[in-house]
């Protein structure tokens, strides 16, 4: 067993909260540059230029890329040979979120109850996903999720007869109906299979993939590419004002499912697709 003090996890989460909100990943930045070169709409090009400029200003000033600094999603892969010391890991994660959002001027966007809606004023609680994995390391991924795009996400319990065509149709319908609302260009996370709850998480985890990563299964790699092309033919364009840049990537994750089911979920992210991982 390896001892890990939860204070180390708290500090890592705090740093990741700040970094993800201010510094965009190189894969997304590069995808935006490429999109601008390919864009045909004049308005679209000017919007992509503003997005590029925004990335530079955030980096220079430390001002968050987007004022919606998100509901903080934290994914923990905890090696089963680790012994955690110094308190409850969940409290440590929330303490890290609290210190980053309060001390480093990030927006507090969490209400304590969905209907009474009182702001917790420190952006806690985080949404924490715990996975126990082999080994003696802890992998921490922080992904602050903005709700302009979260609100446009959808789930469907299709049937086996709907098949691949049904899945594709659903993904395209969700993106088309979202139109300009989720701040395109977007990243589209697709979950297929599993259970009702599992499929939504697959879609969210798909958004954590590097945009350059090619799906290891050629069947899904082709589907990702074809869906991306069809989405970019919809003429939604940057901010919904037309053009060939509607999505920067489509990422699919699958899980085994039941003989009677074909769950599918689409989680949409805006172009500020923020996530970063550290390993302790």
């Amino acid at each position: 067993m390896r001892d890990v003090n939860v204070d180390e996890i708290r500090d890592a989460v705090a740093e990741l909260c700040y970094e993800t909100n201010v510094f965009l990943g190189a894969d997304v930045t590069e995808a935006i540059h490429k999109a601008k070169e390919n864009e045909t709409s004049t308005v679209g090009i000017s919007i992509l230029e503003q997005i590029e400029h925004n990335i530079e200003i955030a980096e220079e000033t430390g001002i968050p890329l987007c004022q919606d600094t998100g509901l903080t999603c934290v994914f923990l892969e905890i090696g089963q040979e680790i012994s955690l010391k110094g308190g409850f890991i969940g409290d440590a994660v929330n303490e890290g979120v609290r210190s980053a959002y309060v001390d480093r001027y990030l927006r507090k966007s969490v209400v304590e109850n969905p209907l009474r809606r009182i702001n917790t004023n420190d952006n806690t609680p985080a949404h924490i996903v715990y996975d126990i994995v082999p080994g003696d390391r802890i992998k921490i991924t922080v992904a602050p999720k903005g709700y302009g795009s979260e609100n446009m996400s959808r789930i469907a319990m299709l049937t086996p007869a709907d098949g691949e065509i049904g899945v594709r149709r659903f993904v395209l319908d969700v993106v088309r109906n979202a139109g300009g609302k989720p701040c395109p260009p977007i990243v589209v996370g697709v979950g297929i299979g599993g259970t009702f709850d599992q499929v939504a998480q697959l879609a969210k985890r798909a958004l954590l993939k590097d945009l350059d990563e090619i799906h290891p299964d050629p069947y899904y790699a082709a589907m990702e590419q074809e869906l991306l092309e069809e989405i970019n033919e919809m003429d939604i364009g940057p901010q919904g004002m037309g053009g060939v840049t509607t999505a920067l990537g489509v990422k699919i994750m699958t899980a085994p499912t039941h003989i009677a089911g074909l769950p599918v979920a689409v989680n949409i992210n805006c172009h500020v697709c923020r996530h970063k991982t550290v390993v302790i």
């Binding site: 997005i51 955030a58 968050p64 890329l65 987007c66 919606d68 901010q239």
Partner: peptide, 9 residues
């Protein structure tokens, strides 16, 4: 432009 909060600031 949504997501250009630093620039607009």
């Amino acid at each position: 432009v949504g997501g250009a909060g630093a620039l607009i600031s």
